[in-house]
Design a protein around this nucleic acid. Structure first.
Lengths: 197, 197, 197, 197
DNA sequence: GATGAATGAGCATTCATTCAT
DNA sequence: TATGAATGAATGCTCATTCAT
């Protein structure tokens, strides 16, 4: 029991594998990605992956957990302080996009997979709830500031905003220009704020 | 040389295959669905599928085309005549849902696949465009009726509404109650209409 | 449902596979035999094996069942009519050997495997019982003829004879000359008969 | 450079490894036993095994040699002094069983393996010869004492007795009660002695 | 000596596709 | 047309073995 080394090493490698797998899955899709692809991307051997994840599916779940874990403690402000709703909206859209960059595809894979996998579905549902709560708080602040009318269903709006963003992600995937997406986002938020203030 | 033939027989069988494949893909996902599953669902042999579609991928495109074809000549009115924006919104949501019932999953598969397949992506993009146009016309009518303020970006709103619906479809897939989804939809539309009128 | 053909074809191929697998397993041992080896031996593709047996293990059980089934209705006379116990014994040994030719190894594999597999163990135990019964009948006949003393435990002798044969099979596997084996067999039987008559 | 060393330490560890490997092989079979299993059983690391044995096969041969070595200088008397052949026989059976306890399976593995491995086959053959010689001496003593008729082929009987014991080991492995085995053993020996005296 | 992370050849199994009937 | 037996390329996973520490 002389050598001591690596303890954190393991979780670091785990992380690297997760990142590489995300890239691969995002690029090629879960099913079409070979374990070998992921290994090569890392300059590792296939066998090594199995030291950290007991199966391809397990690796996928590792990614899911990781993604959700990461988002969990994200308390970034959605709305900035500016009065200008339009530029505010644009800013928000860009912020979220920056955070999600490259994950659209894999998130959709997760959604699709969750249709088949209760464990995953539950996890995603819970996470989604958290996101809704977060957005809700942000909206409420705005609401208190008088930007949003008191009779608006803020809970519904929170859910809708998240859904709207997801829907635009789909647009992006099928090749719609992001300019158009942003325009849709801004138009909707402006209309909503106008109607709510 | 037992079988009888017709000319239409072919296209009828084709249709049955497409429907069975949609069910299978929706249930199990594209990759995990075996050609055999589809064949069995139809009481046909695997080989027969290949008389109608030259590959699994081809069958998938058949489905895509079919789905889009079907939606193409759907000029159902989005907005009813009622003044009440809320119930109107609910109605719309229910209408769309009824039409799409069961296709959520396969549409997501299509989206995901389109990330990899330019041909599919182009087709979906074009179809999406049509949907946007359709929604746009509906909105414009409302706009002319004075329900929506003239300064609202109706193009953006049209795109946003479609995206919103898609995003809610995702919510459904991860187990969110449809009551909540509908509430989000209604809240958003109410806020929007209020702000726009 | 026009073509009708092959019905017995299947069970014939199954048989051919079992025979080829027996040879392979006997030659290389269960674990070291590749499904591909078996396939090639038959001029078939690997995939085909899986049309008839759902796994390598299943194929092994197929062999076990087959072997036992085959032996089941074997009511060959052990003892001939001759008075000469010695040549009789030799004859018997040769007869059994001829029937078992080449199966020694695979039977040992079955025995070894049965240590781990209750299902197999039970099947082999039952089959062994049958063999014992068969031998017992034969001995009883001899006994009635006055060749064996009445106070001998024929049940025990029956079991012992079978065991003796198995033990000699082991000798053969480790390279002992069959002449020596036969000599042992004859010596034992002669001593036994002498002592029992 | 933490560890201490001795000269005997090595051969002691070697011995521990051999014992652990025997247990593992007996339990799981040679092929299905992982080097890791053996290492864990010892609280050692996989790598350490390779300091003592250059391969899994080498370890197996180590076991074989060890087993044979151990048996080599076993000059335990087979026959006790008692006149009563029956209880004598029982005694012998029990003695051998006690010595072999737990090795049945691994010995069969050795036999099976020897079909493929000339080196092992030769070693086992030689060892078997030794056992035969040992048994032969014992029998001869009995023979001189007048228990066995002079015209009996004691060489053959010696080989047969060993084979009989092996065959009964097979019975045990497939779940036959040891009571039955012992009964067979006794019946045969009684018949033989009766016939020989 | 001892360790255990890394390796990669090896293999069972799957499944889209073909084709003789 | 329809069939379904046959195919074989593709791939997830295992595990004996090595080697830097």
């Amino acid at each position: 029991m002389c050598p001591k080394v690596t303890e954190l090493h393991k979780s670091e490698v785990r992380g690297r594998i997760i990142r590489a797998a995300m890239e691969s899955f995002a690029q090629t899709g879960y099913d079409k990605t070979k374990m070998d692809d992921i290994a090569k991307r890392l300059g590792l051997s296939k066998g090594t992956l199995y030291l950290y994840f007991k199966s391809k599916e397990d690796l996928f779940f590792g990614i899911c957990e990781h993604s959700m874990e990461e988002g969990k403690d994200d308390d970034s402000k959605l709305f900035t302080k500016k009065e200008n709703a339009a530029s505010d909206a644009e800013q928000i859209y860009d912020n979220i996009r920056r955070r999600e960059r490259g994950n659209d595809r894999i998130i959709l894979e997760m959604v699709v997979e969750s249709a088949r996998n209760p464990r995953l579905r539950k996890a995603m549902h819970e996470y989604r709830q958290k996101v809704h709560d977060h957005v809700l708080q942000e909206i409420k602040k705005k609401s208190e500031d008088g930007f949003i009318r008191k009779d608006v269903d803020v809970n519904g709006i929170a859910v809708a905003l998240v859904a709207l963003y997801d829907g635009l992600a789909i647009n992006r995937m099928i090749g719609m220009s992001d300019a158009m997406n942003k325009r849709a986002w801004v138009a909707m938020i402006k209309a909503m704020i106008a109607g709510s203030s």
